[in-house]
């Protein structure tokens, strides 16, 4: 590493400093004040809309018409919330429950089926496994919006439009999940361990439960968090199949709050804030995992 460039202690201090400064890779260079300052500004931009959402959500209507704009939260959060939850046609409380159901079911199912398929692709020998894996990777690149019209017709034939099934079913296993799990299992589960368990007569499912599952817990956390966030935030398809029904997800409900000729933003943003809280909590608890998941995915891609 950099130690190579650092001259022996006998060298003049000036030269040592120069070499250390110049020859060092950026990731080994301590950040200066300027870097921290710029990062802080970036962070401010990233966080401000969220903060301001909270400000409006806790304020009266007047706060929106103030110049310079209000920057401190008000004390009307509960009042606004009560209004949101009591609106007749929005079903906001139910929508939060629906979002939770959809996200939890999809996440659990993705974790189970994707790790199972990932295990099969990574460690089991079967005819056509390579070709089938290539197929999985290819499906990663297909924009899902292309088939949305036909998907709606398919769901109509099944009688699922307007029910949570229509939102849950297409997400139960994802190509990304299978791919991600396969990559992780290839590297983290030793072949010998699988082989020896086999020798002892363990069935495939037993190997999965006793050897694979414990080894891939970190990957499960990452994939689970990413899937939950994506499912919770999904808007277009839920809007198409669920809007106008009594079973909206929270994103559809928020868009309902914001429809009509006169939009009351303190309500809309109070609702939006409530629907964002679960994700903020997740980022706070699992932020490390989410960051790692995204960065690992980048190196592999």
């Amino acid at each position: 590493m950099t130690a190579v460039t650092v001259p022996p202690p006998a060298a003049a201090p000036v030269r040592r400093r120069r070499a250390a400064l110049l020859g060092r890779a950026p990731q080994d260079t301590p950040a200066g004040i300027g870097t921290y300052l710029l990062l802080a500004v970036t962070m401010l931009f990233a966080a401000f809309p969220l903060y301001w959402m909270f400000v409006i959500a806790t304020s009266t209507d007047e706060a929106l018409a103030k110049l310079p704009p209000a920057v401190l939260p008000g004390d009307r959060f509960l009042v606004n919330l009560r209004e949101v939850f009591s609106l007749q046609d929005v079903y906001f409380a139910a929508s939060l429950v629906n979002s939770a159901i959809v996200s939890i079911v999809v996440t659990a199912s993705v974790l189970f089926f994707c790790s199972l398929a990932g295990f099969a692709f990574a460690k089991l020998r079967f005819r056509g496994s390579n070709a089938l894996m290539v197929f999985v990777v290819l499906t990663l690149t297909v924009p899902n919006q292309l088939g949305i019209v036909a998907l709606y017709i398919v769901m109509g034939k099944l009688g699922w439009n307007g029910t949570l099934l229509a939102v849950i079913a297409p997400g139960l296993v994802t190509a990304f999940g299978v791919f991600y799990m396969r990559q992780f299992i290839v590297n983290s589960v030793p072949d010998e361990l699988v082989e020896s368990a086999r020798m002892d007569g363990a069935s495939t499912m037993r190997v999965y439960a006793n050897i694979v599952l414990p080894a891939i817990r970190p990957a499960l956390a990452v994939l689970g968090l990413l899937t939950f966030v994506a499912t919770w935030n999904d808007f277009q398809w839920p809007l198409i199949t669920l809007s106008g029904t009594d079973y909206p997800t929270s994103m559809v409900a928020i868009s309902d709050l914001a429809s009509g000729n006169y939009v009351i933003y303190r309500r809309v943003l109070a609702g939006a804030f409530v629907a964002t809280i679960p994700l903020l909590v997740m980022l706070f608890i699992g932020g490390r995992q989410i960051v790692r998941g995204i960065m690992e995915g980048a190196v592999k891609a």
Binding site: A46, I254, F273, I290
Partner: peptide
């Protein structure tokens, strides 16, 4: 790093309403 992901986890629906104002 986690802070940089605040926008990423925020629902687009929610953030769009803020930007709308």
């Amino acid at each position: 790093r986690v802070g940089m992901l605040l926008p990423y986890i925020t629902p687009i629906v929610a953030s769009t309403m803020v930007f709308s104002v």
